[in-house]
Amino acid sequence: MDRRDLVRWLSGFAAAGWMAPLPGAERVRLAELLPRSGGAAAFTPAQAALVATLADVIIPRTDTPGALDVEVPGFIARLTTDWYSDEEATQLRRGLDAIDALARARFGGTVLSLSEPNRTALLESLDTATGQPGSAEHTFARIKSLTVYGYFTSERVQTEVLKTEIVPGRFDGCIPIPG
């Protein structure tokens, strides 16, 4: 997705008054939008919905933008189709299916459909475990690191949240942290 598309995509949501935390139906809608955001070949609709859900849970919207506000799922889709090897992409997709399969086995539904306490319990168990590539645990870790990276390297977060100085103009080696 290029930047012009990104702006159009974000402003489309803003125009819809989409300011509250995402209900499940919105996440599905988001997943439907993914093909237009460069993720066409990346995921099945169910996988895409899961990626969006996980990104939203990992970095939710608070008083600052959340992962979905800065197009993190599109970034994950782009890396999946254009950066990862075929094997890595296959493992990622398999791992996404494994996360939903685990959700169904433990709580009777996909991650998207779970109650918040159940979803948190499931993801905490994945977050504190390790696994082989293609496993639910490994894939959660990968989605999490991609979410954090995609979020913090986005223009909005860099400029509005972190207020990164591109040209500081000076270097101070050891100064008190303000306020």
Binding site: I58, T62, F152
Partner: peptide
């Protein structure tokens, strides 16, 4: 290290710590 340190956790508290703490 800033946000790149990652670490365990997720959600609003995790996000706030990555933004505000070093």
């Amino acid at each position: 290290s800033g946000w790149g340190r990652g670490g365990p956790g997720f959600g609003a508290g995790y996000k706030r710590a990555l933004i505000r703490e070093k």
